[in-house]
Amino acid sequence: MAATNQKMTSQEALTYFDSLEPVDAPMMIGTWHGQGIDTDHPMDGLLEASRWIGKRFDGPDAVYPLVHKGLFGRDFFVNPALLPLGLATHLPMRDPLIKVLFPLLGPFLSTGKPKARLRMTEFRGKVSATMQYDARPINDVFRKIDARNVLGLMDHKGAQAPFFFKLTKVP
Rank of each mutant, 00 (worst) to 15 (best):
Y133R: 06
A159W: 11
A129Q: 06
L109K: 03
S110Y: 05
M120V: 12
M154G: 02
V127W: 01
K115F: 04
A135F: 03
R143G: 06
R143P: 01
M131N: 09
D140W: 05
E122D: 15
M131C: 14
T121W: 01
T130P: 10
F142T: 02
F123P: 00
L153W: 01
A135R: 14
R143W: 06
L109P: 07
K115R: 15
A161K: 03
G152K: 00
T121G: 05
F108G: 11
T121H: 04
A129M: 10
I145A: 11
L105S: 12
T130R: 07
T130W: 07
P137G: 08
F163E: 08
D134R: 13
N149D: 08
G125C: 13
E122T: 15
I145F: 08
Q160S: 12
R124H: 12
S128A: 04
R148N: 14
L151F: 07
T121F: 00
I138A: 04
F108D: 06
I145M: 15
P107F: 11
K113M: 13
D140L: 05
D134M: 11
G106N: 10
M120S: 15
K113L: 14
D140M: 02
F108K: 10
L109C: 05
I145H: 14
A116L: 04
A159K: 02
Y133G: 06
R148I: 00
M154S: 09
S128F: 04
L153H: 03
K157E: 13
T111S: 14
